[in-house]
Simulated scan of single mutants.
Amino acid sequence: MSNILIHPGQFPVQQVTYRVSQYDGSPHTFVLYRITTRERKVHEGVTNRYGMTESIPTRYPDEMKIVFPESVNEEER
């Protein structure tokens, strides 16, 4: 059996957005967020009036971490 090495450059960059919802399904508007990609890039912002984040470029959309700090500058707990 041989090992196959896949270079990250072989994965296409995808643009990922999140929709933040309240428990009843309505958009959670103007909420502070911090998204960290697997590539260790941090994107901070505020959801828009539709509860959407900015578009985040990444090769690994399934390995993104999103937190909702009380303040964007707050350290993660």
Rank of each mutant, 00 (worst) to 15 (best):
M1Y: 03
S2Y: 00
N3W: 02
I4W: 01
I6K: 10
P8Q: 01
P8C: 05
P8W: 02
G9T: 07
G9P: 06
G9S: 12
F11A: 03
F11M: 05
F11W: 00
P12H: 03
P12A: 05
P12Q: 07
Q14C: 14
Q14A: 14
Q15V: 09
V16Y: 02
T17P: 07
T17S: 11
T17G: 09
V20N: 03
V20F: 00
V20H: 04
V20G: 02
Q22G: 06
Q22K: 14
Y23M: 14
D24M: 12
D24A: 05
G25E: 06
S26K: 07
P27M: 08
T29C: 12
F30W: 04
F30D: 02
F30R: 09
V31Y: 00
V31M: 09
V31N: 02
R34T: 10
R34E: 01
I35L: 13
I35Q: 02
I35G: 00
T36S: 03
T37H: 00
T37M: 06
E39Y: 06
E39V: 09
R40Q: 12
R40Y: 04
K41R: 12
V42F: 01
V42P: 10
V42N: 10
H43N: 06
E44N: 12
T47W: 02
N48F: 00
Y50L: 15
Y50H: 14
Y50R: 13
Y50G: 15
Y50K: 15
G51K: 03
M52H: 10
M52F: 11
T53L: 01
T53S: 08
E54D: 11
E54W: 04
S55N: 08
I56A: 08
I56N: 08
I56M: 09
I56Y: 00
P57K: 08
P57C: 06
Y60N: 15
P61D: 03
P61T: 07
P61C: 13
P61E: 04
D62M: 15
E63A: 14
E63F: 10
E63K: 13
E63T: 11
M64A: 09
K65M: 11
K65H: 09
I66V: 10
I66H: 05
V67W: 03
V67M: 13
V67A: 14
F68C: 03
P69A: 05
P69C: 09
S71C: 13
V72F: 05
V72P: 12
V72I: 07
N73G: 13
N73E: 10
E74G: 13
E74M: 12
E74I: 08
E74H: 12
E74P: 04
E75M: 13
E75L: 13
E75K: 14
E75R: 13
E75T: 11
E76H: 11
E76L: 15
R77L: 14
